[in-house]
C-alpha cells in the first residue's frame, strides 16, 4: 500500500537504472541490517534458544526416564514369568510323582488281592476235597452195609437156611477182598 502511494507520488521520476545499485541508498541499509540482525540475535538468544533447549532437554530426560522405567518393568515381568514357569514345572513334577505313586500302590493292592484270592481258593479247594473224601468213605460204608444185607438175603434165599450174620459178614468181607484183589490185579 505504501509502495503504491510512493510509486504514484514519484511516478517515473527515477532514471532507468537498477534500483539495487543506487549508492545513495546504501548507508542506511548497511546500518539497519546490522542493527536488526543484532537485535534479532539478542532476542532469540535471550528468549527463544534457552527455552527450546530446556524444552528439548526436559523431554529428552523424560523419554529417558520412561525408557528406564519401561526397562525395569520389563525385567520385573520377566522375573515374574520365570517364577511362574518354575512353579509350573514343580507343580507338574509333584503331580506326576503323585500319579506314579498312586499307580504303584494300585498295583500293589491288586497283587495282594490276587494273592489273597488265590489262598482262599486253595483253602476252599482243600476243604472241598476233604468233604468229598468223607462223603466217599461214608458212601462206601453205606454201600458195604447195603451189600451185606443184600448178600444175606440172597444167600438165605439161595441156601434157604439161616446163615448167621457173623458168618455172612465174614463171607462178604472175603468176597469184597477178592474183588479188591481182582481189581488190583486188573490194574
Amino acid at each position: 500500500m505504501i509502495s503504491v502511494a510512493y510509486a504514484a507520488a514519484e511516478g517515473q521520476a527515477k532514471s532507468a537504472g537498477v534500483p539495487q545499485f543506487e549508492p545513495s541508498m546504501f548507508e542506511h541499509q548497511i546500518f539497519w541490517s546490522v542493527i536488526s540482525f543484532l537485535i534479532l540475535l539478542y532476542l532469540l538468544n535471550k528468549h527463544v534458544i534457552p527455552a527450546i533447549n530446556e524444552l528439548l532437554d526436559v523431554r529428552a530426560k523424560k523419554i529417558e526416564d520412561d525408557l528406564n522405567s519401561a526397562q525395569a518393568a520389563r525385567q520385573e515381568a520377566e522375573k515374574v514369568q520365570a517364577d511362574l514357569n518354575n512353579k509350573m514345572t514343580s507343580a507338574n513334577k509333584v503331580a506326576s510323582d503323585v500319579f506314579e505313586q498312586a499307580r504303584v500302590e494300585a498295583n500293589l493292592h491288586r497283587e495282594q488281592a490276587l494273592e489273597e484270592l488265590a489262598v482262599e481258593l486253595e483253602k476252599k479247594k482243600s476243604a472241598a476235597v476233604e468233604e468229598i473224601e468223607v462223603a466217599k468213605k461214608k458212601a462206601l460204608a453205606d454201600v458195604q452195609s447195603v451189600v451185606v444185607d443184600v448178600a444175606i438175603m440172597a444167600t438165605e434165599k439161595l441156601i434157604a437156611k439161616n446163615v448167621t450174620k457173623a458168618v455172612a459178614g465174614k463171607m462178604v468181607e472175603e468176597a469184597l477182598q477178592d474183588i479188591e484183589k481182582n481189581k488190583a490185579n486188573l490194574h
Partner: peptide, 28 residues
C-alpha cells in the same frame, strides 16, 4: 525492477551517517 526501489520514509542521520528509515528497513 520498480518494486526493488528503496524509498526513505524518515530522514535521519547519526554523526553524519545516514540512518534513514526506508521501506527496506521497515520490511526487515
Amino acid at each position: 525492477l520498480h518494486h526493488f526501489e528503496v524509498h526513505k520514509f524518515v530522514d535521519l542521520s547519526l554523526f553524519g551517517f545516514d540512518i534513514s528509515i526506508s521501506n527496506s528497513v521497515l520490511w526487515m
